Simulated assay, not measured.
Amino acid sequence: MNSKLPGHVDIPRLRQGKVGGFFWSTYVSCPNPDEAGEDFLGATWRVRDTLEQIDISRLLIEKYPETFTLSLTADDVKNAVVNGKIASLLGVEGGHQLGNSIAALRQYHALGVRYVTLTHTCHNAFADSGGFLPGIIPLHHGLSPLGLKLIDEMNRLGVLIDLSHTSDDTARQALKYSKSPVIWSHSSSRTVHDHPRNVPDDILDLIGRGPDKTDAVVMVNFAAGFIAEPGNATVAAVADHVDHIAKVAGKEHVGIGSDFDGIEEVPVGLEDVSKYPALIAELYRRGWTQYELAGLAGANLLRILSGAERVAHELQAARTPPVVDLYDQRTDIPRGARVEL
């Protein structure tokens, strides 16, 4: 595979960019609200579409075994890099893709999914989205009761909680409620550039490893509209976001989330995955050490993944039961029905 594909990602450019691993985002768009309905009951076929996305991701990973290897744990990622492979982790980019079902989460996990974004640009049965532009009307004012249960099961399984796309209230509540570390898979700094998809400083202040803080990593998005005013998105502007998140939350809590092949307009100098070294060089010029840059490039995320695995092991060792709560708006089961294990 030597030809350059359309978009931002292909094997030659991954190698040129020194990429050691990345998330394959199994993304299905939010349903039309008229189809989904007020209670989100009309678009559960999003589960089917997500399964197809997982399937195609795994088929591609299997098709190029000399390049990719499916990675399920932090140790898998390290082993892939040592063996010259590109670690491939799977994620689901939106709680609407669960079809209102915590049971679906377990099945995604069994297929290799290791993060779930609580929302995409739409609200769902579990949590409020931040939308894409200001003005989205809150539904749950953060997490719903079922959303809290979803986090319980994500913690028990070791599935990373991703807070990109969520409302600020959802993010604050999830940070305080989760027993496991969390991520923002592709978000930047709202102080550096005021965009609702970016993370404000008051939430960055909640991140850390001390008392009343939650370990997390904010993985910076390269979407030009998230980075700067039109025409001003550059490598240096992206580095400004990295620097600011590091200043507020600490250098241990920032990573690279690019969103390549999920965005249309990119910064000058960061046009595709081959250009990652340009960002590393810019930060090195600003005084980042090789150890801090290693954290940014992947070690910080691996710490979070290891932390989630540790919490899952502890919960499972304590025989914490699986969460079997059902969505109370379902019409195909009697109201108040429960599953007991």
Score class of each variant (00 low, 15 high):
residue 224 A to G: 07
residue 230 P to D: 03
residue 216 A to I: 12
residue 215 D to A: 14
residue 196 P to H: 08
residue 192 V to F: 04
residue 203 I to D: 05
residue 205 D to L: 15
residue 190 R to L: 05
residue 230 P to S: 06
residue 205 D to V: 04
residue 188 S to Y: 00
residue 248 V to W: 11
residue 217 V to M: 02
residue 247 K to L: 10
residue 210 G to E: 13
residue 192 V to I: 15
residue 194 D to V: 09
residue 241 H to V: 05
residue 188 S to C: 08
residue 244 H to G: 11
residue 222 F to K: 09
residue 240 D to E: 15
residue 241 H to A: 02
residue 231 G to A: 08
residue 209 R to M: 02
residue 249 A to P: 06
residue 224 A to N: 08
residue 226 F to P: 05
residue 242 V to K: 10
residue 216 A to C: 13
residue 211 P to C: 04
residue 192 V to W: 06
residue 248 V to S: 13
residue 213 K to I: 06
residue 245 I to Q: 00
residue 199 V to K: 11
residue 238 V to C: 05
residue 200 P to C: 11
residue 197 R to I: 09
residue 226 F to V: 05
residue 234 T to P: 12
residue 211 P to M: 08
residue 204 L to K: 11
residue 223 A to D: 14
residue 225 G to R: 14
residue 227 I to N: 12
residue 220 V to G: 01
residue 203 I to H: 03
residue 194 D to P: 03
residue 224 A to W: 05
residue 225 G to L: 10
residue 207 I to W: 00
residue 203 I to V: 15
residue 201 D to Y: 10
residue 203 I to A: 10
residue 200 P to M: 09
residue 215 D to Q: 15
residue 211 P to W: 09
residue 230 P to L: 11
residue 243 D to Q: 14
residue 244 H to D: 05
residue 219 M to Y: 00
residue 233 A to T: 13
residue 215 D to V: 03
residue 216 A to Y: 13
residue 188 S to W: 00
residue 227 I to P: 00
residue 198 N to Y: 08
residue 223 A to I: 02
residue 208 G to Y: 01
residue 232 N to I: 02
residue 194 D to R: 14
residue 235 V to M: 07
residue 230 P to K: 09
residue 227 I to S: 07
residue 225 G to I: 10
residue 214 T to G: 01
residue 230 P to H: 04
residue 191 T to L: 05
residue 189 S to L: 02
residue 241 H to C: 10
residue 189 S to I: 02
residue 193 H to N: 13
residue 189 S to D: 02
residue 199 V to E: 07
residue 200 P to L: 11
residue 215 D to E: 14
residue 221 N to Y: 02
residue 193 H to Y: 15
residue 226 F to H: 09
residue 217 V to Q: 02
residue 210 G to M: 13
residue 203 I to W: 12
residue 196 P to W: 10
residue 188 S to N: 07
residue 239 A to E: 08
residue 188 S to I: 01
residue 214 T to Q: 13
residue 210 G to I: 06
residue 231 G to F: 04
residue 201 D to K: 12
residue 209 R to W: 02
residue 207 I to G: 02
residue 195 H to P: 08
residue 219 M to N: 03
residue 221 N to P: 08
residue 233 A to C: 11
residue 206 L to G: 10
residue 244 H to R: 13
residue 208 G to V: 00
residue 203 I to R: 07
residue 229 E to F: 05
residue 199 V to L: 09
residue 206 L to M: 15
residue 215 D to K: 11
residue 208 G to D: 03
residue 236 A to M: 03
residue 202 D to N: 14
residue 188 S to E: 02
residue 193 H to W: 15
residue 238 V to Y: 10
residue 196 P to V: 15
residue 188 S to H: 01
residue 247 K to Y: 07
residue 232 N to P: 01
residue 246 A to I: 06
residue 225 G to A: 12
residue 205 D to K: 15
residue 220 V to P: 00
residue 202 D to H: 15
residue 249 A to S: 01
residue 217 V to P: 03
residue 239 A to N: 06
residue 242 V to R: 13
